[in-house]
């Protein structure tokens, strides 16, 4: 990986929060990097820690969550050492976040135009007219008529609201846009349109995307590289085409076997048996072993390390030790 175009490097990140049942390590030693102009997909089930990572990069995670280890480097700056002022200019301008169900979290009392204006004016010196122009321009680029600047969130459909949120996140042309489940709860057609719009914006503006979802089928073809997370750790990471063509980790294999096809051959799928682990007491050794058809004795006691099996194809599994 060329270091000049690397914009984000996460090393051995650990995040913990105290729950009613004791400390939960939501993210346990995650490392990956994102390049300039790249779409990086992060896939995993609910509770695997992917949303936690998204919020940690911007350090918006609220107590009782704490970062207990690792580093986040954005373009030679250490995010974990930033002061509040530094973070204020870092957020939205360098890295922005479209969080899960953002479309339902818009302020119902303020028009979407004003909400975008707020973001622009809070982080730049533009005057109101410039900011308004910018807001209108962003809305147009996501496919919303500028005269809807004056609409309230409830007057827009789900798809429109999500587009507005995306426009907000991109209004300051950040280097990296983190999108956490941006199309869940949207209809198939709307989902498709929005993904296409995001792709168009990406090629014209040139930002990178960290795309987080539980639906692997969205990432294939849309992202250049994909990391598969399970129970707070990355279990496999590679280029998307490579991952689909030659998956190594049994979890990845299970995931790929969870998608019925509309036009392929019709066959019985197995998916992945069992349920995700309780993160307050994850299984010992390899965390996936209780659900793994190929589990060996070793898997119950020794945690596998993430190793580069082929160039740029990493796997954490004893099958390949």
């Amino acid at each position: 990986m060329k270091n000049e175009s690397q914009i984000l490097a996460i090393r051995d990140l650990r995040v913990r929060y105290n729950s009613e049942r004791g400390p939960v390590t939501a993210v346990d030693g995650v490392s990956f990097s994102i390049m300039q102009g790249e779409v990086f997909g992060l896939a995993g089930e609910s509770g695997c820690g992917k949303s936690t990572i998204a919020q940690t990069i911007l350090r918006v995670l609220r107590p009782p969550a704490v970062i207990t280890g690792g580093s986040i480097e954005f373009r030679d700056r250490q995010v974990l050492e930033m002061t509040d002022e530094e973070l204020a200019s870092f957020r939205w301008r360098e890295v922005s976040l479209v969080f899960q169900s953002a479309m339902n979290s818009l302020n119902p009392l303020i028009t979407i135009g004003d909400q975008i204006l707020d973001v622009i004016q809070a982080h730049t010196d533009r005057n109101k007219r410039d900011a308004r122009e910018r807001a209108a321009e962003m809305l147009k680029r996501v496919g919303i008529e500028p005269d809807r600047l004056r609409s309230y969130p409830h007057e827009l459909s789900g798809g429109m609201r999500q587009r507005a949120v995306i426009a907000m996140a991109l209004s300051l042309e950040p280097t990296l846009a983190i999108m956490d489940e941006p199309t869940t709860a949207l209809d198939v057609l709307v989902q498709r349109q929005i993904l296409e719009e995001i792709e168009e914006l990406r090629t014209s503006i040139g930002f990178s995307i960290l795309f987080i979802t539980h639906d692997l089928s969205l990432l294939v073809g849309f992202s250049q590289r994909i990391a598969i997370m399970y129970a707070g750790q990355i279990v496999e990471m590679s280029y998307s085409s490579e991952l689909v063509r030659e998956p190594f980790h049994p979890y990845t294999l299970g995931l790929l076997d969870s998608f019925p096809s509309v036009n392929g051959e019709r066959r019985k799928l197995i998916g992945i048996p069992g349920t995700p682990p309780d993160m307050s007491a994850p299984p010992g050794g390899c965390r996936f072993h209780p659900r793994c058809a190929k589990a060996m004795e070793r898997c119950r006691f020794v945690a596998p390390q993430l190793r580069e099996l082929k160039p740029d194809h990493w796997v954490a599994c004893h099958l390949y030790d």
Binding site: P64, V66, T68, G69, D84
Partner: peptide
């Protein structure tokens, strides 16, 4: 209530995610 209590206990004035060595 509990969020405020924690903040007070951790003596932090910052509202960003706290970084604490394990």
């Amino acid at each position: 209530r509990s969020g405020g209590a924690i903040l007070r206990k951790l003596y932090l004035r910052s509202r960003a995610t706290p970084v604490v060595p394990n």
